[in-house]
Design a binder for these strands. Sequence first.
DNA 1: TACAATTTTCAGAAATTTCTGAAAGCTCAA
DNA 2: TTGAGCTTTCAGAAATTTCTGAAAATTGTA
Lengths: 185, 185
Amino acid sequence: MKLSSQTQAFVLHFGEMGSRWGFNRTVGQMFALMTVHSEPLNADQLAQALKISRGNVSMGLKELQAWRLVELHHQPGDRKDYFTAAGTIWDLARTVFEERRKRELDPTLTLLRQLLLNDPQDEEEARAQERMQEVYSLLEMLDQFANTLSKLDEKDLLKLMKLGSGLSKLLELKGKVTGGGSKSK
Amino acid sequence: MKLSSQTQAFVLHFGEMGSRWGFNRTVGQMFALMTVHSEPLNADQLAQALKISRGNVSMGLKELQAWRLVELHHQPGDRKDYFTAAGTIWDLARTVFEERRKRELDPTLTLLRQLLLNDPQDEEEARAQERMQEVYSLLEMLDQFANTLSKLDEKDLLKLMKLGSGLSKLLELKGKVTGGGSKSK
DNA sequence: TACAATTTTCAGAAATTTCTGAAAGCTCAA
DNA sequence: TTGAGCTTTCAGAAATTTCTGAAAATTGTA
């Protein structure tokens, strides 16, 4: 399989960006290729197109499955596994968003909950705990907000993201209209 | 300077998480320490507290300055540079958010704009470009949304993040109340 | 059951990133 | 202008991550 120079560039770029997005170069490349390629691809095709070893492809696919970013298919009369990117671009973005939340926020929230259980032993420790509490509150809220966003359907998400400066206007309305409605807990 | 076991744990954790947040272990540790420590710290104190070399501290501080996460101070009669985390926890979170947007989104948007200028040479390339266009549209919107969020003041951000399920209710109101108001371009 | 096709695993190699520490560079008071 | 005190730089070392490829495991078919 020969990649067009467009696809080549796209794939290489996603490889470079991979580490910033939470996966390594070849995983990024594999994901990019499956995203733009309309047909399902098997491991040999991936290895050949990206010029990487068969073993590396196997590991990469495992990783992408852990991220829930790929889908397994089978072709009749062919024992090979074929893969595609899982769902629409929106689905993919949502999945990346959720997985990153899980990986970047949850472990820290867990640790901070732990640490904040202990009583501070001196002044300096008390001050440190205050700051940790602030970090915790903020991350906790961010986590819940991310969770709320994840649950919105595509229509609402689109609406929200397109609001622009309308967002703060809408926030002003909050309560005024519904009479203090959603007290969310 | 001796770190309490609390602070020690916090610092080590931020070191581990560092790579997921966009910086390396020692940079994460330095940032964590400055975040919980109330007093400004100089390079020697950082090196000693974290048991890392003076040179590494210097590089780390440079990195944290590039992220705009630390602030330089001077003590009267002392030629050393002293550093603190730049601003409140909210300020810091906002800065990390903005920097990450810049690093994770901008390069990809730039590349995709480039690639989409070219005319597709065949069917497969046309299909690939369609997908790239979808990726572009989504990332572009995300970028603008992130930008909108960055501009909200703390009060509004808090309000938004606390909405929970109230968010979709509020979105339903959009337009109905203001009479189609903010058409945002 | 036997075996051919395929995938997975994993030890070691290669590549990349991070860290150290000595030397070079700055800056300011005298 | 000198030199003490401090910071930065950067070549090479150390640590970590990623990748390869051969061997082991798995799976479906005859």
